[in-house]
Nucleic acid binder design. Sequence first.
RNA 1: GUCCCCAUCGUCUAGGGGUCCAGGACGCCGGCCUCUCACGCCGGUAACGCCGGUUCAAAUCCGGCUGGGGACGCCA
Length: 489
Amino acid sequence: MEPIVTRFAPSPTGHLHIGGARTALFCWLLARHTGGSFLLRIEDTDRQRSTKEFEDSILEAMAWLGLKSDQEPVHQSDRVDAHNAAIDRLLQEGKAYWCECTPDQVEAMRERARAVGAKPKYDGTCRERGLGPGEGRVVRFKTPPAGDTAFHDMVKGRVSWPNQELDDMILRRSDGSPTYNLAVVVDDHDMGVTHVIRGDDHVANTPRQILLYQALGWDIPKFGHVPMILGPDKKKLSKRHGALAVIEYRQMGYLPEAMINCLARLGWSHGDQEIFSSDELIEAFDPHGFGSSAAVFDMAKLDWLNSHYIKESTPKRLAELLKPYFQRDVQTGVKDAELFLGTGSRAQLAARVETVTLDYLERIIPLYQPRSKTLAEMAEAARFFVLGWEALEYDPKAVKKFLTEDTRPRLKEIAALLRGLKNFDEKALEETVKGYMEEHELSFKQIAQPIRVAITGKTASPGLFETMAVLRKNETVKRLLRAADLEQA
RNA sequence: GUCCCCAUCGUCUAGGGGUCCAGGACGCCGGCCUCUCACGCCGGUAACGCCGGUUCAAAUCCGGCUGGGGACGCCA
């Protein structure tokens, strides 16, 4: 069997969104699974709306997801000569014709058809007139007037279309440029594409393209139309549904492997398996796993997958990915910044994060791997590790509740004890604090929260001793002492 | 309006005539663990859109209905 060739063909008129990313993933997986190749074609023939920025953005998003194409991307705009050659041949063979109807006239035809409850389409006025080239004329395809065009779809099974529904589509515009359906067929043929996987919104184009393949005498590729991805309201996913561009998910702190895993399970399944590594996907990927109904994109599931992969990842990698979030945090600001009692400020965080080493971040991360859904969330929760003791922010409610007249003196005593420790590790810390409790007949619960508020400024944090160990002795003691002297608001 | 496609828990889905009073996962609820928050573990909640057929037997096959989506460009 010939090797499979798939292709992803985005138009650079916007960022790569969820639906496009999933299509690309499926194409890539089919190629990888079968040992074939995965190609990329930039459909930039709409010069009004296509931009280099969007093209770069799409490429960047695909690189982030690890969907590399096996050859340099093809630009459709570079291929007009090939498109024109095909149109000319169709013209010569009498399979296409010149038409001088104006857009207004065609619109009137459509209106007339609509009025009698028929499909709005071009009525074939110029079809048999034998017109030649001329100013303002377009080239149209002679669609067979009767019969059906059917094909076997990899996800839908048999799909059949009445030719009557298809009007004589324009192949060449009046400005001489080739149109989409023609260009796609010529490009896919020339690129040797054997399997076309694309969104459901392209099904209606398929019979037209098949007719073109037949007219040109070319082999017809296999088609697979994957169902649309819907928003929570079950409507086509759109800007209204929040962040859609794949690169935005990266900014929000999602890991590419989580995104890939999530995308793969939208419209495709493999028994009961939910977690797939890239290699597992390649291994298991089989078009038989395609589902046929539209799917709603569920952020909650992405969160779950992401927290899973955060747990699986290494602190070293996470440290590098995390650092920018502190800096971004600095730029966008934290919503409650003013509510904190401390003198901590964005500027101070900015200054601190520059001095923080990757090594320090690497020690913080294990404490947050079990408790973070995204990197952004992780950075937010770990703020207090980065801010120095003198800039630490305190939650006023926590201070009021736990740093009381009773507890503050104890923090001082504990600070003194900890200062004497020579091994500032979890075990020693626990022994010391527990020893203090026994001596003063206190329960751990009575003293844990005051300590926590003192060293983190908050009521929720990772374990006390692991937190102190990461903070190290000097920083821990300073925080304890500062909290002990805090003025009540 | 015309044509095409789709229809199992709130969501993603398994299921391709009997093994399904429908399984898994996310979410949600409850419990356990526990220094807080999480993690983890245990348990629970919840679905075959409707109506007809075919069959000894239907979530699974057929038809209709309803509902949803998509396409009807000199955009891609």
